[in-house]
Each structure stands twice: as C-alpha cells, then as structure tokens.
Design a protein around this nucleic acid. Structure first.
Lengths: 221, 221
DNA sequence: CGCCGCATGTGATTTTTATCACAGACAGCA
DNA sequence: TGCTGTCTGTGATAAAAATCACATGCGGCG
C-alpha cells in the first residue's frame, strides 16, 4: 500500500503507469510495497530467486558480476525510471538472478509482486512496450560491453568511462577499477598517464577533466 | 507467400504459431517470404537497419562482434526454433543492428515483415511470451559471456567450448579462436597443452575428446 | 606426381594486465 | 595534535595474450 506522495512520484517517474485505467491502477498500487534501502545494500544477488519487479524512485543500483578473485565488473546501472531488466528476465524465465545488484546510494523503490508484473504484461500495451524497450536497451548495452571487454585496451575503456561522467568526477580509483573489471593499481597508473598528457587533473577522490576533446579522441580510437 | 511444405515445417519449428486463430495465421503466412542463403552469407551487419523478423527453418547463424583488427568474438548462435533476438531488439527500439550475423551453414528462413512482427506482438500472448523468453535467455547468455571474457583465462574458456560440442569436433583452430575472441596461435598452443594432458587427440580439422571429465573439471575451475 | 592452398606447429618477442609489497599522504576525529 | 583508516603512488615481477615470422604438412586437384 502506497501513500499519496509515493504514488505521485511513481507516476511521474513511470509515465506508462498513467495509461492504466483508474481501477487497474488502484489495484496495482494497492498490491505494491514501498522499500527503502541504505547505500551499499545488496539488493539482489547471484543465484537468488526473484522477489518482484522493482520501480526505482530514487538512488541507483549497480548491477555487477563478481569474480571469485574479488574483482568485479559493472554490467550496467539502474536509475529511476528504468527499473531492472534482470528482474524481468528472472520473472519471465522463472530463473534466478545471474548478477548482483548493489545500492549505490540510498534507494527508495516500489516493489511490484510477481503476479502483478505478469498481469500488467499480459494486459497492458504501455507496460509491455516499456519492458520490451528496457530489454532492447540492455541487450544493446551488453553487446557493447562484451565487445569493449574483449577488444579494447583498458586505457581506452577508462577514457571512455571518464568522458561519460560530468567533470569533477568524484570517485576512487578502486571504484573505477570495479566498473571496468580491472585492478586499482592499473587504473591509478593509467590515470597518471592521462594526467601527464594534460588530459586530467588528479586529486583525492576527484578527477577533473581538463581536455575532454583529447580524451574523447583517445577513447574513440 | 509460402508453400504448404514450408508452412508445415514452420509450424513444427515454431509451435507458438499454431496457437493463432486460423484467419490470422493465414494472413501472417501470406505476408511472409521464404529465403534461402548459402553458407557464409552475411545475413545482417552492424549498423544496418532491420528488415524483418527471421524464423529459421534450417541452418544456423553465428552472431558476432568484429574488431577492427580482424579478430572476432561470437556472441551467440541462432538455431532453428530460436529466431534472432537482436532483430527483435532492432524492431522494437527502431535502432540498427549492433552485431554481424553470418550463415554458418546454408540457411532456410522465413522473413516476417516488421509490421507483421508488431501486430503479432500486440495481439498474441503466445508470440509475446515467445519473444520475452528469447530476450530473457539471451540476456542470460550475454551476462555469462561478459563475465567469462572479463574474468576467465582462455584455457578454461576453450575447455568449456570443447565440452559443449559433440566429440569428434570438426573445426579449425581459427574457428575456435573466432568463437572465443582470441588468436589462432593461442588456441593451437592451448590445444597442444590439452593433448599433452591426454584430454584430447588432435587431427586436421578435428578434435577428439578423450577425457571429457578432466576437461570439464578444468573448465569449471 | 607435383603444386597450391589452407591448417597447423613453434620460437622469439612485445604488450598488456595482474599481483605483490609497501611507502607516503590526506582527512576526519578523538 | 596525533592516530587511524582509506586512498594513492610506485617499483618489481610474473603471467597471460598478442604479434610476428616462418616452417611444416596434409589433401585435393590439374
């Protein structure tokens, strides 16, 4: 059961819900639950069965693969409005999660029970189309990622990662390494190289991009 | 327009089509086209717009990412009954292909026009469910692949590839390398190692697995 | 048979990434 | 102010892969 404020935020983030007939919308929201999770929470984990369909209101989820060695690689990030396609996949295929989801910041999300998810999918074009597009986008992302991991050198991937963020990038080298699936020392050394080229300026937990053009060019090839 | 033989093969490979009401089925099949392509044909390529939805009757398609260097990596293989999810993704997202599809053997396939695909998706639960499951399976595959490429050593990946095939494996080292996204020499050397362990016996364009258990164990970890 | 094209073996070398092992540095806090 | 935990820099080394450069060899075909 959701309060009015939550409802309106939900409808704002997920416009497709607005297309539901009123009664339907009512029963859907009645069956949903609000959840709040602190940053760092493992939202779901590999091999775990799937609870329901999450609709993110605030915060973000890093979806990662963890290697036994402790290294990890980010598959993608879920932001409000996007929901988590991996969950759809689990719910549809009745399989288990194949990755881990970690709350990057504190999360607010609404959890739709599996039954509601299936009903929505069966009954509502808007919802269906939303889920299809999610799938489609993720598939594209993942194919890009595979290709990058297989064929690109780490320096290029790092450069691409940097330019994908707004300039004073506040993060640790370890976090960047985790996103790229590499080790912290490597990232540190590469960043040092970039700094020597005058492309970035390094500080503690901060990276300023000073020559985005050069970085971009380097990332492209 | 399809002949009767093609129709019956289609319905056999794609049982979900049988669930369509007769008239519907009729119009669908009327709009479809039969295609035959020789082995080696590039069925679709990166950055190309999408023609329609393929239903494979025989043969198989290797879906790959090609690096500028000439190296390539197989993302997955499409076999009859499976269709090509990448195409769905294109049709749904109105984007272009993000990979290349190559006919591994001669293909027979039926091409559904985009309009028919959309109509089916909107109108028929069976078809929808079919497409959703395809998406779901591919997503799982791709996540596995990313993880393998990022974290596993080539020898393990090669071992896994070998045990996934029926024993006298008829292929070239180059083809294996292309599937793994690596170079021929590496595969040759690794195979030699496996042979020295007594796990396989090597011949020209042929690999016999002599100790599947050991290979499997090695692949697992 | 002899030749040609592809498939494979292999050494040498380089590049890239990972690992290990610390040292210094900074920030917040007691 | 001094301590502590985290973040970062760096050298040394190892490991894995890629690259280059040929040699060898098999098989089919003219």
């Amino acid at each position: 059961m959701l309060d009015n404020d939550t409802r309106s935020r939900l409808l704002q983030q997920y416009p497709m819900l607005r297309e539901l007939p009123g009664a339907e919308q009512e029963s859907l929201l009645a069956s949903a639950n609000m959840m709040q999770l602190p940053a760092g929470t493992v939202v779901f984990d590999e091999n775990q069965p799937c609870q329901g369909f999450p609709l993110l209101l605030s915060g973000s989820i890093r979806v990662i693969k963890a290697a036994p060695s402790g290294r990890e690689l980010q598959l993608y990030r879920v932001i409000p409005g996007e929901s988590c396609i991996l969950t759809s996949s689990c719910l549809l295929g009745h399989t288990r999660y194949q990755a881990r989801g970690i709350a990057e910041q504190a999360l607010e999300m609404v959890l739709l029970p599996a039954s509601a998810f299936h009903a929505m999918l069966a009954g509502h074009e808007a919802f269906r189309s939303y889920v299809f597009h999610l799938f489609s986008d993720r598939l594209t992302d993942l194919m890009q990622l595979v290709s990058a991991v297989a064929f690109q050198k780490l320096d290029q991937r790092l450069a691409a990662l940097l330019i994908s963020r707004a300039s004073p990038i506040q993060t640790t080298h370890q976090a960047l390494a985790d996103e790229l699936g590499s080790a912290r020392e490597i990232v540190s050394r590469l960043l040092k190289g970039f700094a020597e080229q005058g492309w970035v300026k390094l500080g503690r937990e901060q990276i300023d991009i000073t020559d985005a053009t050069a970085l971009r060019k380097f990332a492209a090839l």
